[in-house]
Design a protein around this nucleic acid. Structure first.
Lengths: 139, 139
DNA sequence: CGTTACATTTACGTCAACGTCAGGCCCTCT
DNA sequence: AGAGGGCCTGACGTTGACGTAAATGTAACG
C-alpha cells in the first residue's frame, strides 16, 4: 500500500506539484502553456509536466528576473530546441539579447540612482523645513 | 497693433503654451485635469493654465520622476492646498511617503544590481561556451 | 450514490497613464 | 464661402502577465 498519491514518483509532476515546486499558480502554468512556453503532456485532460518542462520553467523564471518579456523568452527557448545544431549562432543571438537587456538594466539603475539622490536632497530640504516649523511652534 | 497672439503676455497659458513649456501633450494635461491634478480656468470651453497650475505641474512631474503614482501625487497636492495651516503635519506626511518611496527605490535598485551581476555571470558562462564551440568548429 | 477535492475550459476583468481616433465648434485668412 | 488651424468632448485601444468567475468534469473516498 505505497501511498502512490500524486504522480507516483514518476518523473512527471501534476500541476499542483509543479506549482509547489516553483511557487507559481496553476493559472500561470496554463498561461505559459498557451503562450507555448511549456508543453506538458496530457493524461486525458490533465497536464503532466516533464523534466523538460521543469527545465524550461526554470529558464523562464530566470529570464523574467532579468526583465525579459515572455515573448523574448519564448523565442530563445524555441530557438534552442528547434534546431539543436546551430549552437554557436544561437548562443550568439542569446548573447546579443542579453547584452541589450543588460545595458537597459544598467541605464535603469543609473536613472534610479539619480532619482534616489535627488529625492534624498529634497528630503534634506524637508528636514530643514520641519526644524524651522518646530522652532516656530515651540512651546 | 501689438501681435497679442496667444494669451497676450498675461500670466495664463493656453494648452499649447503649457505643453511646450513642460514637454507634455495636450492629452496629458486634459488627463491630469480629469484626475483632479490641475484646475485650469475656462475661457468659454478653452483651458487657461494659471501660475498655480504651472507650480502643480512642476510638482507632478517631479513626483513622477520619483515613481509616485498620480494618485499619490494628487493626495499630497490636495493636502497642501486644502488646509494651508497644518504645514508641519503635512510636511511630516510628505516626509513619510518620501521615506517609504525611497526605500522602495533602493530595494529596487538593489534587486536590479543583483540581476545585473547574475546576468553578467551568465554571460561570462556564455562566452566560454562560444569559445569552446569556436574551437570545435575551427578549420 | 453523494460529497469532497482538484482539474479543466472559456472568457471577461485588472492596472496605469495616457494614445488615438471620430466628430464638431469657433475663429481667421483669403 | 471655403480652407485651415486649434481646441474641445467622448470613447475605445494599448500593454503584459496574469486574476477571477462560471460552468463542467472526473476521480477517489466512504
Amino acid at each position: 500500500m505505497t501511498p502512490a498519491k500524486p504522480s507516483d514518483t514518476a518523473d512527471v509532476l501534476t500541476i499542483r506539484e509543479m506549482c509547489d515546486a516553483f511557487e507559481v499558480t496553476p493559472r500561470t502554468l496554463r498561461f505559459y502553456e498557451q503562450k507555448e512556453l511549456l508543453f506538458p503532456i496530457r493524461q486525458g485532460t490533465r497536464r503532466l509536466f516533464t523534466r523538460r518542462d521543469r527545465a524550461r520553467l526554470k529558464l523562464i523564471l530566470r529570464g523574467k528576473r532579468f526583465g525579459f518579456s515572455l515573448e523574448d523568452i519564448r523565442q530563445l527557448l524555441d530557438m534552442y530546441d528547434r534546431d539543436p545544431g546551430q549552437q554557436a549562432a544561437q548562443l550568439q543571438r542569446t548573447y546579443e539579447l542579453a547584452r541589450a537587456r543588460l545595458s537597459e538594466m544598467e541605464q535603469q539603475r543609473d536613472e534610479l540612482n539619480e532619482a534616489i539622490t535627488d529625492l534624498k536632497a529634497q528630503m534634506a530640504w524637508g528636514e530643514e523645513m520641519l526644524a524651522t516649523l518646530a522652532k516656530g511652534n515651540a512651546t
